[in-house]
């Protein structure tokens, strides 16, 4: 089957790729670009472990065909740091102990980033609701919510 040429801006870097028409964005990121921070957990859109930002919006990359996002800006967890400086959410997740096994972490942080980019001072309710898009099996969510709250107060 013919491949499709796709241009993306991934973590502020322009890339041009030849992808399979039936290739998911998650596959492209993990297999072609070695950006393995986005995780494949349920692969059906139920868990959020593969969440990345597409033009700033959080999306399940396991449900998106790469050709669909031609021309888009993609942010993965690997692109969140500013040089050596961690994004405040990354810092807060570490400091608050919001990370255990780490498998949901990139999806959680990116989901939270999109929220704070939309709304700098969300109420706790909004934070809980937004973060209820993603599954974490380790933490009981308390420290994740605290980390997002803490960041929003800065």
């Amino acid at each position: 089957m013919k491949t499709i040429k796709v241009m993306l801006n991934v973590n502020n870097e322009k890339v041009t790729l030849q992808v399979k028409p039936y290739e998911t964005l998650l596959e492209t990121l993990r297999e072609r670009l070695s950006l393995t921070g986005a995780k494949e957990s349920c692969s059906l859109g139920s868990c959020g472990a593969c969440t990345v930002l597409v033009n700033g919006t959080p999306m399940r990359s396991c449900l998106i065909l790469t050709p669909e996002v031609e021309g888009a800006s993609i942010t993965t967890i690997e692109g969140l740091k500013n040089g050596e400086k961690l994004h405040p959410l990354q810092q807060a997740f570490m400091e608050k102990g919001a990370v255990q096994c780490g498998f949901c972490t990139s999806g959680m942080i990116l989901t939270a980033k999109a929220l704070l980019d939309r709304n700098k001072k969300p109420e706790k309710r909004d934070i809980v609701k937004t973060m209820s898009s993603n599954i974490c099996r380790c933490t009981g969510y308390k420290k994740i919510i605290e980390a997002v709250e803490e960041t929003s107060k800065k």
Binding site: L35, T36, A38, K39, E40, E78, M94, G97, V99, T105
Partner: peptide, 20 residues
């Protein structure tokens, strides 16, 4: 209450799991 030594790799996407 120390920051876990493994958390930096996990918040930056650098932590490798088997499928990676």
């Amino acid at each position: 209450r120390v920051i876990r030594s493994d958390s930096y790799a996990k918040v930056t996407g650098g932590a490798l799991y088997t499928a990676d």
